[in-house]
Design a binder for these strands. Structure first.
Lengths: 241, 241
DNA sequence: ACTTAGATTTCGCCG
DNA sequence: CGGCGAAGTCTAAGT
């Protein structure tokens, strides 16, 4: 990884056009070819950047980072519609380096991979193992139940053998309700699924999403991943004593 | 801005749990308090990070970055639902520093803001100047036509003086269709707008969005910002010869 | 302060 | 390789 602290002006052209006036910034060039320009504020997101793969051309006073046109993004001209977006000009990041304050390179080798838990995928796995959390007597029929507008997260049957489509989110917004509604609309055309109902299961459900869901007859279930995982006891002890 | 190159192990707990095994990485600490951990690969996105505002506690061999619980995210316990998601523990980034290779601080002062063009806003301006791009004979009545669920990007009249609501996106997904549908539903209640139709205009329209739009009687128009801007000629010369 | 919508979103999975 | 959905999305703007 190469770290350059320099006074520079940065110009990006590609999907849009952007200009950073001359100022002192950090240029980070990773060994995979990605380049980031960071200011001292505005954390997380670089002021400007280019993701790998890139071609980097360095000359005294300037660094130009290019992405080969036709790679990474469709440059094909298949459409004969109104906007066959033509030969998209290449992405280009031009850095005019006025003054170099520091320029060091560090060999970092390979950094081991990151392990995560707690994302939606895990929630789906946990609920697949405990479908009754979504509703009394629920039995899982299949995860990722296919429809032609996308997969239903969990397809279950309830205690009356009725079909139930379960949509899972970490945070459920109004979009999640719309999504589940589309599935239900779609399923309604399938023989046998006319009365399929919907359940929205999430670690957190936004108030507006809850209102919309309930107005559409969709049940809402807030679940606690930690409890499902067995890391923590439920707050209410059922069958106590 | 402080740049530390160090062999370190990183542990994040908060919205999820993540561990980065010991390896050589760059720690970037900006003056606004944001902290990023970058590996030498996997550009753009830090391996781990914490956005400002933060509290940073440094001791020999360790750096702990905290976000005050209750700030930035709701730590309230208003819900009495099934999952009163408990006392959300604070966000915490723990960096165990094994070996410091480099540790430098640079004063970068203020960097001027980024100027960009080519985003959705510009597309709206371009189409407002050329409403006929959205449909034959279209005339602009008003940009940002207000409704009580948000503004319609462009409100036009077509060659038959019928109302047309135009929704503009840079990339149109299924969400854009839902949004326009909501506007049309809303407008249908307004006197005179019962027959208002919809047009989805975007630099790129996803196939599923197109299918959904057309199944709802919404026209789709792909537009090329470069052509609208006059930077480039359309690929197909109409009225050729 | 909170909510909503945009982003050069980026990223990862599955077809 | 392309489409689609999630993200510790982040971020800026509006209410």
């Amino acid at each position: 990884m190469r770290l350059i602290v320099a006074r520079c002006e940065v110009r990006y052209t590609g999907r849009l056009t952007a200009v950073l006036p001359e100022a002192l910034r950090l240029l980070m060039i990773k060994s995979d070819g990605s380049v980031m320009v960071h200011a001292d504020t505005g954390g997380f997101k670089p002021s400007n950047w280019m993701t790998a793969p890139t071609v980097i051309e360095e000359e005294p006073g300037s660094i130009v980072v290019r992405k080969r046109a036709g790679t990474g993004r469709s440059a094909g001209r298949s459409s004969i519609g109104r906007a066959p977006h033509g030969p998209i000009s290449e992405d280009r990041l031009e850095i005019r380096v006025v003054e170099v304050v520091s320029d060091v390179t560090h060999d970092m080798g390979e950094a081991a991979a990151l392990e995560k838990e707690g994302v939606e995928r895990e929630l789906q796995e946990l609920l697949a193992d405990s479908p009754e959390t979504c509703g009394e007597g629920f039995r899982l029929v299949r995860r990722e139940w296919p429809t032609d507008i996308g997969p239903v997260d969990l397809m279950c049957r309830d205690s009356d053998d009725g079909w139930v489509a379960v949509e899972i989110k970490r945070v459920a917004t109004i979009d999640a309700v719309e999504q589940l509604t589309r599935y239900l609309e779609r399923l309604a055309d399938e023989p046998g699924f006319a009365s399929c109902r919907g359940v929205l299961a999430a670690a957190a459900i936004k108030p507006q999403a809850r209102v919309l869901a309930e107005s559409r007859g969709i049940d809402c279930v807030e679940v606690d991943p930690a409890v499902l995982r067995g890391d923590r006891e439920p707050d209410l002890t059922l069958f106590a004593g």
